[in-house]
């Protein structure tokens, strides 16, 4: 079956041990997590996980169902890139003397839309946000020209192209049900 990069979005209660509960589901199905990003969501007390992984759709569907089944998970779903606006951030540490040997730093900065976070006699830190391919392209160019002392890239963060965050609708529905049961 066709392997593709899927983005899995998970909303959960902020209870300890949830990351473990989620990752072991990937492990059991022999899927490597490519990127992972966790942070508080727009709704207080609810955390949002964004995970990317290569898999077939059939398998990713099963994994998402298994994640959704966990008690403290509010909602889990998956998307392909076309359904998302997504971004990653990368930091590059470069030796300043090497950088200065480049003819035009301005050209580089304009070409990649680089932000300079730190600059001193010894090293310079570039920041670039973009898709994986874009941050990788800059890494490649710097490696081949001035050399990269250190490099780090974040996990993907993503927002769906649909108008509302699905969670807010779902929560409203749940809260309504809660009132009718209690």
């Amino acid at each position: 079956m066709e392997q593709k990069l899927y983005t899995i979005t998970i909303f959960s209660e902020n209870t300890p041990g949830l990351l473990n509960q989620i990752t072991i589901i990937f492990t059991r199905r022999q899927i490597n997590i490519e990127t992972l990003s966790v942070s508080p969501s727009a709704i207080e007390g609810i955390h949002k996980f964004t995970i990317t992984a290569f898999a077939s759709e059939d398998l990713i569907q099963k994994v998402v169902q298994q994640i959704d089944k966990r008690i403290d998970i509010l909602k889990a779903y998956y998307n392909v890139d076309e359904e998302l606006v997504h971004q990653e951030i990368a930091l590059y540490k470069i030796a300043t003397p090497e950088l200065l040997k480049l003819g035009s730093v301005e050209g580089l900065i304009r070409k990649y839309d680089i932000k300079i976070l730190e600059l001193n006699e010894t090293f310079t830190v570039f920041e670039k946000t973009g898709h994986h391919a874009e941050t990788q392209q800059l890494f490649k160019e710097l490696s081949e020209t001035v050399g990269v002392l250190q490099f780090i890239r974040s996990g993907r963060v993503a927002i769906t192209r649909s108008k509302v965050e699905r969670l807010s609708d779902m929560l409203a529905e749940i809260e309504k049900k809660c009132k009718t049961t209690s």
């Binding site: 209660e13 008690i71 998970i73 509010l74 749940i174 049961t181």
Partner: peptide, 8 residues
């Protein structure tokens, strides 16, 4: 416990 919002 009659209800858990993350578990229906």
């Amino acid at each position: 416990c009659k209800f858990i919002r993350s578990y229906q």
